[in-house]
Amino acid sequence: MAISDIRRQYRLCTLDESQLTDDPIVLFERWLKDVIEAEVPDPTAMTVATVAKNGQPSQRIVLLKDVSAEGFVFYTNYGSRKAQELADNPKVSLHFPWFFMERQVRVSGVAHKMSVAENARYFLSRPKDSQLAAIASHQSKPIAKRELLMAQFSQLKEKFTKGEIPVPDFWGGFRIVPHQIEFWQGGENRLHDRFEYNLSASGDWQIQRLMP
């Protein structure tokens, strides 16, 4: 079968005005709850798209760690490619690919670094091996072979056999404060339902239906 022949119909459900909420975060939380309850793999996985100084976009998958009226939160190494690009251009796009539910959510916003206290609180809540991995890996930097990374991890594990692991100053979170959120529900015959929320200057969310 040719790639161009791969297709399917989207028939699970529709999205109309009666299902919308005034605040898109409320609708997002409902959809996220649906995905979690459906036991979709990696329900909090999202694509984070950033742009380099030369205008080249870059994407990667990270895990959403919090969502509230304040925004969407993820954590990373501040020396990573994504963090460096956000330092130069804090405008960011998030994408939640919930294809098992025939749904997608797209978020456009601005990245803000989390506070030291917020970083520490989350870091210390992580499993110990995850804490050590965050210190062992100089994210996005070249490495000759995997064995070097594993050796660094083992050394740190031996060093911190007992006691609390210090929170690294090169690691922390970003909160994406959204100004646009789109909800996409797959529809039969490619007649998808799309609703876009845009934040107005007064702080209210304006909603419009988009053509599929």
Rank of each mutant, 00 (worst) to 15 (best):
H95T: 05
V67T: 06
G79A: 08
D129V: 15
K65A: 08
S68M: 04
S18G: 08
P168G: 04
D88P: 00
K162N: 10
A120H: 07
G186S: 09
V92C: 11
Q9Y: 03
S108F: 11
L210S: 11
Q104T: 06
R175I: 04
L27H: 01
V167R: 01
A136E: 11
R106Y: 08
D16F: 07
R146T: 15
I207P: 04
S125G: 11
R7G: 12
Q152V: 13
W205A: 05
V51L: 05
E37P: 08
E196R: 00
V62W: 08
K145L: 15
G173S: 08
L210I: 05
F170Q: 06
D66W: 02
D5S: 06
P57K: 09
H112Q: 14
S108T: 09
P142G: 07
E102V: 13
R175N: 00
F74Y: 05
D23Q: 13
V167D: 00
E196D: 11
R190D: 04
E39M: 15
L12Q: 04
I165G: 04
V116K: 08
S80P: 02
G71T: 10
Q185I: 04
Q208K: 14
K33M: 01
A120I: 04
S4C: 14
G186R: 00
T161A: 12
G187M: 06
D129P: 10
P24S: 02
W98D: 03
L63K: 00
I181W: 00
S58Y: 07
T21I: 06
F28T: 01
A2H: 05
I176R: 03
V116P: 02
K91Q: 14
E85T: 06
R81I: 13
L199N: 04
K65M: 05
Q180P: 03
K162P: 03
P166A: 12
L148S: 04
S154Y: 14
E196P: 01
V105D: 00
M101A: 12
R30V: 05
L63S: 07
A151W: 10
V62Q: 07
M1Q: 01
R8M: 08
S140Q: 07
T161P: 02
A134D: 14
V51Q: 00
V67Q: 02
Q155D: 15
R106T: 09
S154V: 15
Q59G: 12
D66Q: 05
M211C: 14
L86G: 03
I176E: 04
A87L: 14
P41K: 10
S58L: 09
F153T: 07
N77S: 13
R7Q: 11
Q139W: 12
I25C: 06
W184T: 01
R146D: 13
F183W: 07
R60Q: 03
Q208I: 15
Q139A: 10
D88T: 00
G71N: 09
D66G: 01
L149I: 14
L199C: 07
L94F: 08
P166L: 10
E70M: 13
L32E: 14
Q19M: 05
K82S: 03
H138I: 09
G79N: 09
E188V: 13
K145A: 15
Q9H: 02
W184P: 00
P24R: 01
D23F: 11
F170K: 00
D204I: 15
P168V: 12
T76P: 00
A83K: 00
S115T: 04
L210D: 12
R81P: 05
A151K: 14
M211D: 08
Q19I: 09
Y78C: 08
R60S: 05
N189K: 12
R30G: 05
A52S: 13
L15M: 06
